[in-house]
Design a binder for these strands. Structure first.
Lengths: 267, 267
DNA sequence: TACAGCAGTCTCTTGTAAGGGACAATGATG
DNA sequence: CATCATTGTCCCTTACAAGAGACTGCTGTA
């Protein structure tokens, strides 16, 4: 959260936030906010602070947290009055992986690819209208960002984003992309029309490369993984230094496309 | 569920079940039951069946499922009208792993151990008063049970169960162990006093071996992982053929204890 | 010693979500 | 074609959970 990571700063709680706050809120929604908040903070947190964080009444928060802890979705962390995710969530998560061929094989492929190329490799998916790094494998290069899994980044910032939106019409895209999303980390502003044009290009090319979008030092290469003809279910991508030679880049793209295609077949 | 696995048959939905059913139920509880039910069935399921499964009113179930799908905790599966766990749960699960040294290192150690010995190896923990296989790695032997992760087995059936209960007094143990739990899969009935005696023995020995408890063909070797002196946080265990020689068994136990101890130190 | 702040529990009220049940739309089955 | 089963949506009622707030320990600090 406060680790000075420009990306993390963007991963605020989605869920329409408090809107006008005031009114009574359904317990389930509160719970969803709590989970999302914990995901954003990435550490155990006191119940009081949690209540502030999702701005829910303290009494309500205590009740909900108790339920969740009893159910094992949350656990009281070490010192005793902080909570974080619990074992049950881990188990459910593993169930998800088990039931999801694409994810299971995608994780392997990504791990393999990063070992093979030495570059950071990622599996990305659209998660309720937002771009999410579902699995990432660091690569040997002395680079930052260890475990960005679960990180959500505005779609226009990424090569994968352009591929993931290939199947959607203009209205749907406008719906998913907020004004803020079009402002790059360095302050530059993307025009929506340009972005939509990029998407069309990426779609017909079957891959996408972006340079210096999220930061000035990296290029992002991405290839689509199809769940059905025309339906982009995920992307695999490689993050490489921006000064990587054209030849090497082309080689990597070819490799990436081959691997992404291999993932597509039986998904 | 219906795969004829004696163990799976026992993994019914805990949550006090329907009790007298009748009354109005809190939405959150319904959700917890839904998740637990999906975990038990291990496959996507239609909303109607889901409603029956947790015996909740259909209308309520539709509403809740919609919320959960919107939040990404559940996803509509392939054909369109079935639901299963969603990406969000996977992400939360990974957050849990990341925040949990013991689990992270334990998984590695288990994978390593099973590769090294060729035997099935597991990491087990107490999960809200029940024994749970948190991670398992198959081993090379031509054996059944692929991914038993998340499986819950009655404590008295296992070597690990005896170790995990080392820190608890008689009342607490009675509380966690139901009458049914004392009946082994082959129909034999364990006496509670014997079980409690076993626990004391396992505690002072620092390991535990059980033969032919869950099935007639395997031995289960387990060693405790401590989170604090005297506090058993998890166990590592090996599942080996029941006719494994005494020498080999002793070797494996020594290895297991060493690895479990290594996990303990910084947890 | 007094004061401020936080953790955790409890009670009471009222807004609202759970649930019953009706409805239309589909798909099986004889 | 008639019949039965299922899916998905909608509306209305009332049982009950969310929330406000009081209260009791603690712990630190001035």
């Amino acid at each position: 959260m406060q680790d000075g990571n420009a990306l993390a700063a963007r991963s605020d709680v989605g869920l329409d936030e408090d809107k006008n706050s005031g009114s009574r809120e359904k317990g389930l929604n509160r719970v969803l906010q709590i989970l999302e908040f914990l995901h954003a903070t990435q550490r155990a947190i006191g119940i009081g602070d949690l209540a502030k964080g999702v701005n829910a009444p303290r009494s309500t928060t205590y009740t909900l947290v108790r339920s969740l802890v009893d159910a094992g979705l949350l656990e009281m962390a070490g010192d005793g009055n902080r909570v974080y995710f619990g074992k049950k969530l881990y188990l459910y998560g593993m169930d998800y992986v088990r039931g999801n061929d694409l994810l299971r094989r995608g994780r392997q492929e990504v791990d393999h690819l990063s070992r093979e190329t030495g570059e950071t490799s990622e599996l990305c998916m659209l998660q309720s209208g937002r771009y999410t790094i579902v699995h990432s494998s660091p690569g040997t290069r002395p680079f930052r960002i260890s475990s960005a899994t679960g990180l959500q980044i505005p779609l226009p910032w990424t090569a994968s984003g352009r591929l993931l939106l290939a199947g959607f019409d203009r209205a749907a895209i406008e719906d998913m992309v907020s004004e803020d999303d079009l402002v790059l980390p360095d302050g530059r502003r993307l025009r929506l029309d340009d972005f939509i044009a990029d998407i069309a290009v990426a779609k017909s090319a079957g891959y996408c490369v972006t340079s210096g979008l999220v930061d000035a030092y990296t290029k992002c290469l991405a290839a689509p993984v199809f769940s059905a003809p025309g339906r982009v279910e995920a992307t695999m991508c490689l993050v490489v230094p921006i000064d990587t030679s054209t030849e090497k880049t082309d080689d990597l793209i070819a490799l990436l496309r081959e691997r992404a295609a291999r993932l597509s077949i039986a998904a």
